[in-house]
Nucleic acid binder design. Structure first.
Length: 302
DNA sequence: AAATAATCCTGCGGGC
DNA sequence: TGCCCGCAGGATTATT
């Protein structure tokens, strides 16, 4: 299942292969993803050029430009260079993709395009600098989604209420502390609440709480600012380690080359219930928060 | 406002 | 061998 590090790995892979690619045609075989792909989807994408691939939370944002505006400096690059960010040019837009639980992209050379297999729901035919490619989207469980929109990100309901990115300065201890003063529920669930902070799914919630020595059931409003500082540090560390590991592998996750993720991060707790704690050898315990498996060390986490 | 539950979906593994 | 069941899980939506 792609969590933030996997999505970031996919983003980098897509960008390295497909920047500047022009969309020829789009073939949708199954429109029934998390939300139905609308009938106008194919026509909206045809003829646009990929100028940038961004990530927000676990969403991929394919920034697309109409032919007459392709030379323009992409907003993110402009921002990095200190140039005033201008709105995307007319005729442009964004393809918003969520991989859900089991979504994956594979880029095929068009001359060796395999026959579509079960759950190959969408093909995007692309003219890239390396010749014709087909970017194929596969998603067995169809928890993923695809939308095309133009205009501001903030106008998108799916993006409008997202909390800060965990790997930026927008996430700090003060933010979490302030926003949890009225939350009596378990910190585990608060950490997975996308309005508080994005991109921390079940695996990394478990791992970062272990590393921070915080019991997953502890009420969010009964954690000190100092302990939130530790937690924030561990969230950033574990996500960064996972990205550097090339995205950890879980079940049917594949990256954009069609290869499995390079290797699985060495988990302290996730999937290790009843096994000995790697720090103190106490058997790890399993419990559930909101229906999700939580594994923790009853000695190391308080 | 916050907490909880239900919902979407398919593949897989365990039990019988 | 095959069938049923539980589980996996993000994020939205509905309900309390």
């Amino acid at each position: 299942m792609p969590e933030l590090p996997e999505v970031e790995t996919v983003r980098r892979g897509l960008e390295s292969i497909l920047l500047g690619a022009k969309i020829g045609g789009v073939v949708v075989r199954n429109r029934r993803l998390r939300w139905p792909i609308p009938p106008e989807f194919e026509a909206q994408l045809a003829g646009l050029t990929l100028v940038q691939v961004e990530r927000r939370s676990k969403y991929l944002l394919f920034r697309l430009a109409a032919p007459e505006s392709v030379g323009a400096v992409p907003p993110r690059l402009a921002s990095q260079r200190g140039i005033a960010v201008e709105p995307l040019p007319q005729g442009s837009g964004t393809l918003l993709v969520h991989l859900g639980m089991t979504g994956s992209f594979v880029a095929h050379q068009a001359n060796v395009l395999p026959t579509p297999r079960t759950h190959d729901h969408v093909d995007m035919h692309l003219s890239t600098r390396d010749g014709p490619y087909v970017l194929r989207y596969n998603d067995p469980r169809r928890f993923g989604s695809m939308h095309f929109f133009d205009g501001e990100d903030a106008a998108q309901p799916l993006l409008a209420h997202l909390g800060p990115e965990p790997l930026t300065d927008a996430l700090d201890a003060a933010h979490l502390y302030r926003e949890t003063r009225r939350r009596t529920g378990p910190i585990k669930q608060a950490l997975m609440d996308n309005t508080l902070v994005v991109g921390v799914g079940n695996i990394y919630a478990n791992e970062s709480l272990f590393r921070a020595g915080i019991h997953p059931s502890r009420a969010a409003n009964r954690i000190s600012l100092a302990r939130y500082a530790k937690l924030v540090h561990e969230v950033k560390t574990v996500l960064t380690e996972a990205i550097n590991a090339g995205g950890s592998t879980l079940r049917d996750f594949v990256n954009t080359s069609g290869e499995p993720g390079y290797f699985q991060l060495d988990y302290f707790v996730y999937g290790r219930d009843e096994k000995p704690c790697k720090v103190c050898a106490t058997p790890l315990k399993l419990m559930r928060h909101g229906g999700r498996a939580t594994v923790f060390c009853p000695v190391c986490q308080r």
